[in-house]
Design a protein around this nucleic acid. Structure first.
Length: 490
RNA sequence: GGUCCUGUGGCCGAGUGGCUAGGCAGAGGUCUGCAAAACCUCGUACAGCGGUUCGAAUCCGCUCGGGACCUCCA
């Protein structure tokens, strides 16, 4: 397995190129992904990002790397906007619902974990919170101030972007020029504290009515949004680490600011490979909480929604997402999900069929080459759609072996089974959707099908067909094969 | 307005100079008592116009359409 390491290439948003992946420390990977601000339910667009990086984590794991996967929970500091009166999102929600901020945090953190669990996401190794790292954040602010790249104004501390840009490059990630940014800035109220509209808050002074605030050398306040990620990634992964992921919409300003903060505080560029997952769209427009163009996972799983109007299993949704590359936008529609659902079941059946396939002396195709193609797809910047295409090729082969039209040797059988399972379950994170959890149904069906077989043996087609029709009405589909009938629930 | 991305057959979606994925839907066939499933065959698609090239969906230019970011968003 470890021999598979070393061929992976990753599209690095920082350089705009696909690069060979070489971790800082051989065999180990530090992975940081920007988590949610837990002030409301996660929607499907949010989920796509987390599912994409779950897949990245899973493949790195499969390749044999030891990974420390850190994904934060933002439970403070995320402002409604950057203006003077900008309110913390969590605090605002707490005020509106008249509950404690930490109740808001708790409620939506639980929801977040529950939803990702249904998508079969693996938990990260560390899931730190912003409020748990206030001291570290204050320390980093001090450090940046010592470097002369931040200044205090009325109890708030701002990052001095223009000064930083004199010796460094603010805009290196988002490919923006500072002059363009300045000219494009709109007039926001209460920005007179800042030297430049581009400057962003490291620490914000809290007005008396604020409920979430902490003491600091600059007075009572709360940390700026971008700071937590810099602090927590540095704390758990080091001043420089391998991969930082997040949604495309975080590229600017969030990630740009992270680079600036990290560089200012440590003198090192914090991240070696930046990865950005693209947006999930609904009706061709980005899913977004603020515009209301969203779909909640629950609504999709239950079918209780206007946008799609049909229930889909979370694993089918995951499969659907895996059929597109993580760097492409993906549009959600009932038709596309329907197609994915059918394809998923076909692939699923082939995986099941592989369990007890009869084996011959040798194989009629080059099985090793097929397996290599799985790796080639994933090594090419986690190209899951191509991987799935190759898995379908394999599924066709499996069907042919089953039908006696192709042969599979014992050794090939073992490795194909191992790799198909590894890619389907471990890498893509898919699961069998159990159709017969109730064991008694299985026993009953065995009985019914054997009775039907008797009727068929007697050429009593009326009885045989009526059994099949009745079962169909009960949503159980009977498929007659050469070696007996099988059934499945629709 | 600025910066950037994108436009692939009925639908979804890979592919970044020649070897022209895959899924769904559709047509024909094999198998089967019939049906379903499965398998086989079939679509010469790359927004438009021009250019570079022996050769372009793939590179360049223009036009048109869609989107993202520039303010919070995965």
């Amino acid at each position: 397995m470890s021999t598979r390491k070393g061929n992976l290439t990753i599209y690095n948003s920082l350089t705009g190129k696909k690069e060979k992946f070489e971790p800082l420390i051989n065999g180990f990977v530090g992975l940081y992904v920007c988590g949610p601000t837990v002030y409301s339910h996660v929607h499907l667009g949010n989920c796509r990002t987390f599912i994409s990086f779950d897949m990245v984590y899973r493949y790195l794991k499969h390749l044999g790397y030891k990974i420390r996967y850190v994904r934060n929970i933002t439970d403070a500091g995320h402002l409604e906007n950057d203006a003077e009166e900008g309110e913390d999102k969590i605090a605002k929600k707490a005020r509106l619902e008249q509950i404690e901020p930490m109740e808001v945090v708790q409620q939506y953190t639980i929801n977040f974990h529950e939803v990702l669990g249904r998508f079969n996401n693996l938990p990260p190794n560390i899931e730190p919170t912003a409020t748990g790292h206030i001291i570290e954040q204050i320390e980093m602010v001090k450090k940046i101030m010592q470097e002369g790249l931040a200044y205090e104004a009325n109890g708030s501390v701002y990052f001095d972007v223009e000064k930083y840009n004199e010796t460094d490059n603010y805009g290196i990630l988002s490919k923006r020029k500072i002059e363009d940014l300045v000219s494009g800035t709109r007039e926001l109220d209460g920005q007179d504290e800042k030297k430049s509209p581009l400057d962003f808050a490291l620490w914000k002074n809290a007005a008396p009515q604020h409920i979430m605030k902490w003491p600091s050398p600059w007075g009572v306040g709360f940390p700026g949004w971008h700071l937590e990620c810099s602090v927590m990634s540095t704390k758990y992964l080091g001043e420089q680490f391998d991969i930082h992921g997040g949604g495309m919409d975080l590229k600017f300003p969030h990630h740009e600011c992270e680079i600036a903060q990290g560089t200012a505080a440590t003198g090192k560029k914090p991240v070696r490979y930046w990865m950005h997952a693209n947006m999930l769209t609904l009706n061709g427009k980005k899913m977004s909480k603020s515009t209301g163009n969203t779909l909640l996972p629950e609504a999709l799983f239950s079918g209780n929604n206007q946008a799609i109007g049909k229930a889909f299993h979370p694993i089918v949704v995951r499969f659907f997402m895996m059929q597109a590359h993580y760097t492409s936008t993906l549009d959600f529609s009932a038709e596309a999900l329907d197609a994915a659902e059918k394809g998923f079941h076909r692939l699923s059946e082939a995986i099941e069929m592989l369990e007890d396939l009869s084996v011959q002396q040798s194989s009629s195709i080059d099985v090793q080459k097929l397996i290599d193609s799985f790796y080639a797809a994933m090594d090419d910047d986690f190209n899951t759609p191509v991987l799935i295409a190759r898995l379908f090729d394999a599924s066709k082969f499996i069907q042919n072996v089953k039908a006696g039209k192709a042969q599979l040797g014992l050794e090939d059988f073992k490795s194909l089974k191992a790799k198909m399972n590894a890619f389907f379950f471990d890498v893509l994170g898919l699961q069998k959707i159990d159709q017969d959890e109730d064991d008694s149904l299985g026993t009953v069906m065995e009985l019914v099908l054997s009775m039907r077989q008797k009727a068929r043996n007697n050429q009593d087609w009326d009885t045989a067909d009526s059994i099949r029709d009745k079962l169909q009405e009960a949503n159980i589909k009977v498929k007659d094969g050469s070696d007996g009938a099988t059934w499945s629930k629709n």
